[in-house]
Amino acid sequence: MTNSASGDEEYVYDEASGEWMPASELAAATGALDGSDLTVRDAVGNILADGDQVTLIKDLTVKGAGQTLKQGTVIKSIRLTGDAQEIDCKYPGIKGLVLRAEFVRKR
């Protein structure tokens, strides 16, 4: 949704803040938060990337699956999400597994 204000500047409604702001300011603010420079780090500070293998550093009870992933379990081919602390994983028998980066170590 746009609103033309006096002058040549175009104003855009920012749903996050609930305010009208100049389009140039909104683009600069969202450009810093769009995840393009998102860095996901594991429990010991290694930078994670899509496709990496990780190892669990502690036992984790998986809610809704009724099972526990043990320390030392290897998770192959992770995918990064838009969140700096969450990674999307595949594990046999568990669909839609999302782990916190603080509980894994890069292999």
Results as ranks from 00 to 15, higher is better:
Thr61His: 04
Arg105Tyr: 04
Glu10Gln: 09
Tyr13Thr: 02
Thr39Met: 02
Val62Asn: 08
Glu86Met: 11
Gly82His: 08
Leu48Arg: 00
Gln85Ile: 07
Ala49Leu: 06
Ser36Ile: 12
Asp34Tyr: 03
Gln67Asn: 03
Ile75Gly: 11
Ala23Val: 05
Tyr13Gln: 04
Asp83Ile: 00
Lys58Leu: 13
Lys70Arg: 14
Lys76Cys: 03
Glu19Asp: 12
Val40Lys: 13
Val44Arg: 02
Ile94Ala: 00
Leu56Glu: 07
Ala27Val: 13
Asp50Ser: 12
Thr39Gln: 12
Asp52Asn: 15
Phe103Arg: 05
Ile75Tyr: 11
Asp37Leu: 14
Glu19Ile: 12
Phe103Trp: 12
Ser6Lys: 14
Asn3Arg: 13
Asp52Lys: 09
Ile47Val: 15
Arg107Glu: 10
Thr2Ile: 03
Cys89Asp: 12
Ser24Pro: 01
Ala27Thr: 13
Lys63Leu: 07
Glu86Lys: 07
Gln53Ala: 10
Lys63Met: 11
Ala5Trp: 15
Ile87Gln: 04
Ala28Gly: 10
Arg107Tyr: 03
Ile94Pro: 00
Asp34Glu: 13
Asn46Cys: 07
Val98Lys: 06
Lys63Val: 14
Ala28Phe: 14
Thr61Arg: 01
Val40Gly: 07
Glu25Pro: 01
Arg107Ser: 12
Ser17Met: 08
Gly45Phe: 05
Asp59Met: 04
Tyr13Met: 10
Leu33Asn: 11
Gln71Ile: 05
Cys89Gln: 11
Val104Ala: 07
Val104Met: 08
Met1Glu: 14
Gly96Val: 01
Leu26Ile: 11
Ser6Phe: 14
Thr55Ala: 08
Ala5Leu: 15
Tyr91Arg: 09
Asp50Arg: 01
Ala43Leu: 10
Tyr91Ile: 05
Ala27Pro: 00
Pro22Ile: 03
Glu15His: 01
Ala84Gly: 04
Ala29Arg: 15
Glu25Asn: 10
Ile87Leu: 05
Ala23Arg: 13
Asp50Trp: 04
Thr30Trp: 03
Cys89Asn: 06
Glu19Pro: 00
Asp83Asn: 15
Thr68Gly: 00
Ile57Lys: 08
Val40Pro: 10
Thr30Glu: 07
Ala32Arg: 14
Lys106His: 12
Gly93Gln: 02
Leu80His: 00
Asp59Arg: 07
Thr81Ser: 15
Gly93Ile: 01
Asp8Gln: 04
Val98Cys: 05
Ala101Leu: 07
Ala49Pro: 03
Glu15Asn: 06
Gly18Arg: 07
Ser77Gln: 12
Tyr13Lys: 06
Tyr91His: 09
Gly18Ser: 08
Asp34Trp: 12
Asp52Gln: 06
Ala28Val: 09
Ser6Asn: 10
Ala23His: 02
